[in-house]
Simulated scan of single mutants.
Amino acid sequence: MSSTFDYCSIAKRVLKTEMAALEQLKQYFNSSFIKACDMILSNQGKVVVMGIGKSGHIGKKLASTLASTGTSAFFVHPGEAAHGDLGMVDSKDIVLALSNSGESSEILSIFPVLKRLNVRIISITSKSCSNMAKLSDVHLQVSVPKEACPLGLAPTSSTTATLVMSDAIAVALLEARGFTANDFALSHPGGMLGRKLLLRLCDIMHAGEQVPVVTPETFIREALVEISKKGLGMTAIVDKKENLVGIFTDGDLRRILDKRINIHSTTIDVVMNPKPITASPNMLAVEGVNLMQKKNINGLILCNDDGSPIGALNMHDLLKSGVM
């Protein structure tokens, strides 16, 4: 059903208004911004983010972003802080307070206690003459020409600008710390990046009795039973010293059937691949994926340094692990 109301024109107007607000934000990346970043970077405690209403929502996102990029931080609702949660704040901490007006009574009411505790305060407001700005050790101004809301009431451009200022602080600190993708993964072990950077083949491989293994003297038909039993689409072939001497896969089976080789009377060493692609169990799972794709194979035998197989996996295992 088509609409006669021009929603898209309004959306474009909102975009234009908020882009103008962000363009103006450049002037506030100044000496105060540098001082705030230096203060947080050298801080021995945590960053306690506070805000109420829409500023509170931005504050929660800021605290989360800081925490995941190397800066210890958490969010405290100013209302709850006044009723006991202020006990979470230590003299070594920095309070980062967000308020568009800079006059939020819930935040201002706890400033005297913060001052008594010698807690340093960074505020982000739209007015340098606000009480929060005056009482803070560092004030970051975020003023916008106008809100995207035609009534000028709903926080829109102002919250977008505050969000960008918050992201700028977090990213500036991230780079100043030399924070790496590996560091990020350590705080995101359950996410896709964490799995790609932390998960190793030994974490997902089949080991022990689950590894399909036969000897060179095994008949092909018996090797097929082992392949079917272990369900990995392949089997390792090992010598008397348990060293890997070959591999036989489902693909190899199709090829020998085309050659009409008797699977009941032919031993596996006749048809095995004597130069199998192997990997270390300590290899990152994502590297295992790349190796299998590069070599166009569906399974890997994982070997110790002495050449003995200790694990096996196939592409399905890697799919289940979430690294693909």
Rank of each mutant, 00 (worst) to 15 (best):
D137R: 00
Q293T: 13
A133F: 08
V138M: 03
I94K: 00
A73Q: 02
C129N: 13
L86I: 15
I122D: 12
M324H: 01
G87S: 06
P78L: 05
N304Y: 04
S72R: 08
L198K: 02
M39C: 13
V119I: 13
K295E: 15
G56C: 10
V214G: 09
A36P: 12
F5S: 10
K35C: 10
S157I: 11
N314K: 02
K60Y: 04
F111N: 04
G70V: 07
K230E: 12
S104M: 07
A81Y: 00
M283N: 08
G311P: 12
T266W: 05
V323L: 03
E80W: 01
A67F: 08
N314H: 08
R177M: 11
V211R: 03
S130N: 04
I121G: 07
T180M: 04
F111L: 11
S143N: 12
R13D: 15
P281Q: 10
N298D: 10
G311F: 11
L174N: 07
G246F: 10
I256P: 09
A236F: 08
L302K: 05
F184N: 07
G307A: 04
M272K: 03
A176V: 11
R254N: 14
S64A: 15
V14R: 00
L193I: 14
Y7F: 13
E23W: 00
A236N: 06
G191K: 00
E175N: 15
E80T: 05
S130P: 03
N262F: 05
N314C: 14
I10P: 00
V214E: 08
G87P: 01
A63T: 06
K12Y: 10
S32N: 15
Y7E: 08
I124M: 15
I52A: 15
N296T: 06
I124W: 00
S31T: 14
